[in-house]
Every structure is written in structure tokens, then in C-alpha cells.
Simulated scan of single mutants.
Amino acid sequence: MARIHFKSRRDPLFGVVILGTVLTMLFVLVAELNRITQPGNEVEVLGLIILGLVIGLMFWLWFDTRYSVDEAFVYFRSGPIRGKIRVTAIREVVIGETMWSGLKPALARRGVVVKYNRYDEIYFSPDSNEAFAAALRDVNPDIQIVGKEKIKSL
């Protein structure tokens, strides 16, 4: 089986939060850079560097969140967060659920919660929840697929 790639769906709520945060930080950054040009003002270089790094991190998360499935693993990446889960360790996939705490390399609500090992779970928001669950089930037919939405094709 070739590796199947899934982009992360982008929810308007997450877009507003990320864009609002970035615009606020850019406003502060520009205001501080303006203040630096005036005589007698001290420069807080460390603060400006941290502000720039946080802005970069937000863009990295927005533009580099994706998933892929091959015959052995589910790979995920969201900015600096990267990992893989053995597909044979997955026991259940919940479609249409939103997980509000825990590991969430996702940019949208109503994605999939992948339960693996004994107590571990992770939240993904692939562009197609059903296609993602079907790709997992193609590798491991023992995965239980449950959901809040009607699931016809699985």
C-alpha cells in the first residue's frame, strides 16, 4: 500500500483565533519597532525576538499540519509537533467528535479521535474524516469505527 496523504481541514474558528493572535502580535511588533527609532528609548531585543518566533510558530502550525497513512503507521505533523502511531495499535476511531484537551495536531472541530494502545488518544482533523477512517481500516480491519454522524461507506 502506498502512503496516502491527508491535509488538515481548516476551521474558520481556528483561522480567526490564529489570524487574530498574529495580527495583534504584529501590531505590537510594529509599535515597538516605531518606538525604537525615537531617541532615548531602550530596546527590548529579547521581547522582539520572542514575539517574532511566536508569529513564525503560528504560521508554521497553520501551513504545515497534515497526516499520512501507510501499511504500518499513521504519521502526523503540525509545525514542530511530529509523530507516528502504529496502525495495529489503533482500537477505535470516533468520527465527528471534537477533543478539547490532550494532543491535538489539528486545525478544525468535528474531526476524528483515534484511540490506540490501552488509554491513549489523539485528535486529527483530516480533510475527509471518512476517507481517513477507511484508510486506517484498510490496513487494520479490526479497528472499530464509531461516530456522531451516520457512517454509510465504512
Rank of each mutant, 00 (worst) to 15 (best):
A106S: 14
V112Y: 02
F76K: 02
W62Q: 05
R110K: 14
N34L: 14
N129H: 05
S153K: 10
R91I: 05
A134E: 12
V69H: 05
L23T: 13
I145H: 00
I95W: 00
F73T: 09
S125Q: 04
V17R: 00
S128R: 00
R109M: 13
L136F: 03
F6C: 03
L154A: 10
V45I: 15
E42T: 09
T65W: 10
H5E: 12
E130Y: 09
I95D: 08
D138Q: 14
V43A: 03
V87M: 02
L46M: 15
T65G: 02
E130K: 06
I36H: 03
T88V: 13
P80A: 14
V17E: 00
D64K: 14
G147V: 04
F14I: 14
G56N: 07
L51C: 09
E92K: 15
V45N: 05
L107C: 03
A72W: 11
I85Q: 00
S68V: 05
S101A: 11
R3K: 15
D138S: 13
V22L: 04
G20D: 06
A89D: 15
R77H: 14
M1N: 06
V17F: 11
D64R: 14
Y67R: 05
E44H: 12
S153R: 09
D127A: 10
V93C: 08
I49H: 08
A108R: 00
F63R: 09
R118N: 13
L26W: 01
F76N: 03
I4F: 05
Y119C: 04
V54M: 15
A108Y: 01
I36N: 03
V146N: 11
F6D: 01
G79K: 04
L57N: 06
N129K: 03
I18F: 11
R118T: 12
